[in-house]
Amino acid sequence: MTGEPLLVGDDLHRSFGPTPALAGASISVRAGEVVAVMGPSGSGKSTLLHCLAGIVRPDRGSVRYRGTELATLSDAGRSALRRREFGFVFQFGQLVPELTCLENVALPLRLERVPRREAERRAGEWLARLEVADVAGKRPGEVSGGQGQRVAVARALVTGPRVVFADEPTGALDSLNGERVMRLLAGAARETGAAVLLVTHEPRVAAYSDREVVVRDGRARSLEQVA
């Protein structure tokens, strides 16, 4: 665990209306590590993830990715960053219902102007790696929840991101499917060297991480000193 952290959030504040979601949260993520963000509902876990991913702009504080302050990037710049450097897995509703699973996985590559044939070839490899090669031609509405989530993981990883943000990726799954998704996500991330920021409220899912950060009342606490 040497070297400059990959992603650093420092003293992040963010309110929605009068309710503060983040009140001075700090966190850093090193390359290749899996960090679980835990905490009670409404503690600001998701907001922290959104801030770190440049989806939500913090009211105060800074987010630096590989030394670049996200606030200095334009909206398009942050979009491009999310497209190229980050991958996302959400709880549900992230696959485009009209596209086939293969096309869904190929979409981030195609947005990066990768030719269709090549994009779909790579997408197919990822589907196989996540053990869902058989659903390639189906639409998301036609596959099971666990399969859909694995397709989503494939889509998050297909561009070779440095950071994968996973917000309750197993929230809608039973424990068997949930663990399967986590095993594949953590395994694939470790193989490719991607860091994973994993928001979850399930301890067994958090157990796939290397360390844990607890968010309480809008502040993040790292509990790694014990480990």
């Binding site: 157990a207 796939y208 991480s209 844990e212 607890v214 790694e224 014990v226």
Partner: peptide, 20 residues
Amino acid sequence: LDTQRAEHLRLMRELTRRKT
């Protein structure tokens, strides 16, 4: 509680690794 929590999770991580 936090110390205990960290200890529990550490063990859970270890078991998860073994499980994998």
